[in-house]
Nucleic acid binder design. Structure first.
Lengths: 117, 117
DNA sequence: ATAATATATGAACAGATGTTCATATATTAT
DNA sequence: ATAATATATGAACATCTGTTCATATATTAT
């Protein structure tokens, strides 16, 4: 009788907990959001993005600037592209990569602001 | 002689590549930034943050809303706190968690905007 | 067609990550 | 002091992640 929902005896915020439970968006939305942020959660990808903020570039440009193998760069570009962070266009033997939209730089900048506060 | 720096024969963007190399911030900065974004790169942590946007909460509140064990919640809160995403205050037996600053919500919202475009 | 170049891709591996379980610490009530 | 409660923490484990290596594909030049 009147078994509490939290902390075994008394809920700390019973009405708030109920409200939050009801208003909670679907798991899928959090999943999608986490996958977006995952793209920013690696120093190599951040470096690549920060380069693409300045100019569209091909694999070999990026590999050269970052002192990385072409393969490693290509894999990361592939991941970024599959997640709609960047897009590409072919020009002869080269494939040029660039940002997919401006939100990407907004998110990046918001992060920069935080760490340099 | 005149050995190219990129693509074995001709750099695609030789002057740009040199410029980018010189202006590249230190690895540590990208490392720090990636660690910030890592905090947002997990659905559970995003859920916790979205709850804390609304109200300061204790472990048991969060565990109840998310149907998670207290231990799992506590571990995530600990990670978030070590990374200065959230702070806490004790009130008797309870420890209340809340956001450390407003940048956090800015980053979160920038992400939400992107995925709902 | 053949060779050279630019990029992509699959498999494998090491290292990181999130949860669970068991246990410890801290606060409060008895 | 003892018991009960809220939270923290260490170890273990399975899963995920990023790079490397080897190889494949696509484009261009010969």
């Amino acid at each position: 009788m009147n078994k509490s929902l939290c902390c075994d005896v008394v809920e700390v915020h019973p009405q708030i907990v109920e409200k939050l439970k009801k208003e909670m968006p679907e798991h899928q939305q959090y999943q999608n959001l986490s996958e977006l942020f995952k793209m920013f959660a690696d120093p190599t990808r951040l470096k690549i993005l920060s380069l693409l903020f300045q100019k569209e570039l091909c694999v070999c440009d990026i590999a050269e600037v970052l002192h990385m193998t072409h393969s490693a760069v290509s894999h990361q570009l592939s991941v970024l592209r599959q997640n709609r962070i960047i897009k590409n266009r072919r020009e002869g033997k080269n494939i040029f990569y660039s940002l997919d939209d401006e939100h990407i730089q907004m998110i990046y900048n918001a992060g920069i602001e935080h760490i340099s506060e």
